[in-house]
Write a protein that binds this DNA or RNA. Structure first.
Lengths: 156, 156
DNA sequence: CTCGAATGGTTTTAATTTGAAACCATCCTG
DNA sequence: CAGGATGGTTTCAAATTAAAACCATTCGAG
């Protein structure tokens, strides 16, 4: 399941998560789970993927602790798939993905679903990254710093 | 290159972006691009992937307008790959991925790279989603609303 | 309780993708 | 202009994905 690690034994903070959710379907499953879907058949109908693939993806999400199975919900003997805390931690990422999609994958006049505040129905704000002092910072205002190495710089 | 669309002709705001960057390598390439890498060989050395794969990924990123080739930089006749505005728009997503990775894929004491403010070297804040009124909202505080349909609800 | 259908998968097999390595063209360097 | 560096493409094997058939359990009706 895990892709081979790229020439380094320990993966960086970006690559490591990608091992868990770095395929087309996993994030869509997680999104559907945020939307309240819980049953195997619900995911399959919503996403339209082959059952063996869904099975494999769910197994992978379970193995990574992103989802878990819970005994029932409507009393039946079936099980349901729900997000763990780790899985719910993906919410900002999904929002970022959605906002990027809205910005660049839809025509200006093209209708698309909107993420809205449940309290008042207003669209949510744009995700913003802020520095400690509260400034909104973009990519050009940030850099990555290596753990504790005395090396000068690097990706990873 | 594009995966088959899942039983609906028009993809949702989450699925559509995944068609462009929904594979393991593309986001890592984009991340390296944010880190300043520009040349084919730089990406290949950094990521350790096969050259044909890198070639295909770069072609896909170019086709989606996420990166573009620019004639030179050091005067040589080679070309370089740089992020477009659309590509730079992926910054919040990468930050979200990184923060999620830091939260759940590293031991508490495990060293990892830090995204810091370039001005003062302090770590950036956590990404937060806010409602129009400024409240920080989580997944449970939001819902998706369909474009203009009179239907009650739905994913997508 | 029993039958049929719905649910939740697994197995089988084919098609697509990925990856490693070899190969090749262009470019820069001396 | 010779040799190496750069930036790919081609070839072929291995792994992954996908569709479809199959199967076991569970639920719902009579």
């Amino acid at each position: 399941m895990a892709k081979r690690v790229s020439h380094r034994d320990s993966m960086c903070g970006v690559a490591r998560p990608l091992d868990a959710i770095g395929d087309w379907w996993s994030l869509l499953i997680v999104r559907d789970a945020f939307d309240g879907l819980r049953r195997f058949g619900e995911f399959q109908k919503s996403l339209g993927l082959a059952k063996n693939i869904l099975s494999a993806r769910l197994r992978n999400l379970l193995a990574h602790g992103i989802m878990e199975t819970v005994p029932a919900a409507d009393g039946s003997a079936y099980q349901e798939y729900v997000l763990t805390e780790k899985g719910r931690g993906l919410f900002p990422l999904l929002v970022a993905l959605r906002q990027w999609g809205e910005d660049f994958f839809f025509e200006p006049d093209e209708a698309h679903v909107l993420l809205v505040d449940r309290k008042n129905g207003l669209p949510v704000r744009r995700l913003e990254l802020r520095a400690q002092d509260g400034r909104v910072v973009g990519a050009e205002d940030t850099m990555v710093r290596l753990p504790q190495a005395s090396h000068e710089n690097g990706s990873a």
